[in-house]
Design a protein around this nucleic acid. Structure first.
Length: 269
DNA sequence: TAAGTATGTTAAG
DNA sequence: TTAACCTACTTAC
């Protein structure tokens, strides 16, 4: 279930469990076996995250580049690890912990320059220290593409996925079909700042919550409800259900092969 | 058992 | 714009 907050959390989790000591590296499923053999017994130096890309640094041996895609999962457990089932692409193991990677879009051993090239093609990530949204704003300010599409474009902003897109647009009352160039500077600055806050909270809690306290079902006199994806949200996957703020049924549409959710009353052109 | 769905990305047409 | 890729879960029959 990967948007940027998941990946940053995974980077921290890997450093906590594996950094600074030799790690056993295997590929039970086999696809990554040759690279795993090169890394086996080496020390994990650090982990890094940019948007939805995770990098595990093994010093001179290079970096393991991981992208979970839509289905990928990284799961942690204690040592000794149980026998892997057939689909574990990458397993890390030390005296105390193991980590299993399943179903990633990408898992490859890359060089420092190759890692640099990935950073270069990604936009600013609200979760990376020192990045501000100005680079993204300049791009958005001259774009005729909808703000809904721009937010999902990793070259524009890295780490935002379908949940954060829907939720941040709701929180700022912005119609997803507005063109980038029609966003005001104040609107973009507020979106960027809000993304940084929401996503940081997402890293902390390992789930996406976007509903302000005053709009929580409890506060509105309704029974508590948690969405399938694990957090409390305004519109994501709430098609047809009443908007938490105004009661209008939440709308959905397919845009660029992804489901888009919004409240036609709260989100204006 | 089969079909459908999912918080993603890339390449082909 | 569509298909392809990767996995696991839920729903339909």
């Amino acid at each position: 279930m990967p948007e940027g907050h998941t990946i940053h959390r995974l980077a921290a989790d890997h450093e906590e469990r594996f950094a600074g000591a030799p790690v056993r590296v295997t590929s039970p499923q086999g696809t990554f076996a040759a690279s795993a053999a090169l890394l086996d017994g080496r020390t994990l130096v650090r982990a890094d995250a940019h948007g939805k890309h995770l990098f595990l640094g093994f010093g001179d041996a290079g970096w393991v580049h991981i992208h979970l895609g839509l289905f990928g999962k990284l799961g942690f457990g204690t040592a000794p690890a149980p026998p892997p089932t057939g689909t574990v692409r990458l397993r890390l193991l030390n005296d105390a912990h193991h980590a299993d990677l399943r179903g990633p879009t990408a898992c490859a051993l890359i060089t420092g320059p190759e890692k640099d090239a990935i950073h270069a093609r990604l936009g600013p990530d609200p979760l990376r220290p020192g990045e501000d949204g100005e680079r993204a704003r300049l791009r958005i300010a001259r774009s005729r593409v909808t703000v809904a599409a721009l937010l999902m474009d990793q070259k524009v902003v890295a780490g935002v996925g379908n949940v954060y897109r829907a939720e941040v647009l709701f929180r700022h009352g912005i119609d997803p079909y507005r063109m980038g160039k029609d966003l005001t500077r104040a609107e973009w600055d507020a979106i960027w700042a809000d993304l940084a806050e929401l996503m940081r909270e997402g890293v902390r809690n390992n789930r996406i919550d976007t509903v302000r306290p005053e709009h929580l079902p409890e506060a509105m006199g309704r029974p508590p409800r948690v969405d399938d994806h694990g957090g409390e949200v305004y519109v994501y996957r709430r098609t047809g259900q009443p908007c938490h703020v105004c009661g209008t049924p939440v709308r959905t549409a397919v845009l660029a092969a992804r489901n888009l959710f919004w409240c036609p009353t709260c989100q204006r052109r």
